[in-house]
Design a protein around this nucleic acid. Structure first.
Lengths: 248, 248
DNA sequence: CGAACTTTTGATATCACTCAAGGGACGTGG
DNA sequence: CCACGTCCCTTGAGTGATATCAAAAGTTCG
């Protein structure tokens, strides 16, 4: 096994982009260069806050983070999970201020990419540019799916759908172990993700466990019966546009 | 008043982009060229359906359309309103198939732009390219706000918020008359937008009317008390990133 | 071993849904 | 100009899913 293949396995951004685009060695090298020298961030830290001026783009190399919006009342809505290989909005610097906050779930390795660096990367590597534009579309599609989730699914369907989505996305970056992945997320966070109270979310998890569909303990989710979980959620992964959906 | 100014007033795409970017005469001319020769589409027609292969980009010049996702059960979620000046996803052609359907609310004037034309436009007009990338960010921000709307606001807040947002967006393209704008949308559609049943939506509208906040009749919404409607919705327009918010 | 946090449980309250029927408005054809 | 059908809005009554409140049990970690 050569170095490129190893690198490929390690760097989640490269894995993610290669899930639907062929990259050259040079493309991969450029992405490696960008990913060098990440910083470690503790759990529960804000990477950037609503109202801040964006100064570049985040790239998550390890760990899990999320986007959230917070109301005056303290109620909050989580609008996206950022997994390894995920980036913030590429053009965020075009806007004057952030309309949401990005916070770490777990300890993360994060790279802060300057706007100029992104611009150069895109200019010099058209394949990467295309792949990144494609990820933007997928992010948007994911937001639409989440809207659907909260807007017209039951509590059980919502949670099941979220778990199915995360499995596909974690598989795409090589962060699964069979049908199991790290999910360092409190029940209150899951509740804020799917628009439920944390009490009701707890009861919904119990129902999923009772049906033998999942196991969730110590920050690790294991899907015990993927076909039934997908059926319960009416889950279809097309909106994620991954080329090869790995088997359970 | 010179021709440019008139054109500017007429073409909603130009108006929209000029709400936050300075365009040259040449930029405007290019956008006019693209907007030439729209086709008329009847109400309730699908412009493109879930599963279809995207063949270009839609630009709405007149009327109102929407994006929706439909479940097997028939339940549906509207994920975006497309107003005059709004376009579909610029890079939609990068994806193999649509994950949602775009349908007209009212009779519309629509332009179908080929992928190549978009590419040329972006290449030749960097200011337009920047402005369009910015609209993508705003679209994403709007999706996040809608998620928040459905996820953690009450029925009344949701509807009030939607009406406030549409006012700002319609103002940005010159489609308002004071605090009033055309809203050719059935109550069942509003319900599918904010994640309520149509019965409950009806009762929510009545409450808004009872409080003297709005009037909604014959496809026209009039906001009678904008400050109170905004307060009821906890509405802040920052996520729309319009530079000049017109007064009530 | 204790403090702080998270998950779980129980009881009650409420917002929103469903079903079903009654009114309007609008258009079409006689 | 009226009669009728259709579509949409409105109303009422009963139900159900989810929220809220409060406390107990479990977990984690210094």
């Amino acid at each position: 096994m050569n170095l490129t293949a190893q690198t490929n396995r390690r760097n989640p951004l490269i894995r993610k982009l290669e899930a639907f685009t062929l990259l050259s060695d040079e493309d991969r090298a450029a992405l490696e260069r960008i990913s060098a020298d990440p910083r470690r961030v503790m759990p529960g830290m804000d990477l950037i806050r609503e109202g801040d001026k964006p100064r570049g783009v985040f790239l998550i190399l390890d760990g899990m983070a999320y986007r959230q919006k917070i109301r005056a009342s303290g109620a909050r809505q989580i609008t996206a999970y950022m997994l390894p290989g995920d980036t913030g909005d590429l053009d965020a610097a075009l806007l004057g201020e952030m309309d949401h906050t990005i916070t770490t779930f777990s300890a993360c390795e994060v790279v802060n990419i300057a706007p100029g660096t992104i611009a150069e990367l895109i200019q010099a590597h058209p394949r990467i540019a295309r792949a990144l534009r494609r990820t933007t579309l997928v992010d948007e599609g994911t937001l639409r799916e989440w809207l659907m989730n909260i807007g017209c699914r039951t509590a059980l369907e919502r949670v099941a759908h979220l778990f199915c989505e995360l499995l596909v996305r974690m598989q795409a970056v090589g962060c699964t172990n069979g049908s199991s992945y790290l999910l360092p997320v409190k029940q209150a966070d899951l509740a804020a993700t799917v628009g439920l109270s944390s009490v009701h979310l707890n009861r919904t998890l119990q129902e999923l466990r009772r049906r033998g569909l999942i196991k969730l303990e110590r920050g690790r989710l294991t899907i015990l019966n993927l076909p039934e979980l997908q059926a319960a959620a009416e889950f279809r992964s097309t909106y994620l546009h991954v080329r090869f959906q790995a088997a359970a």
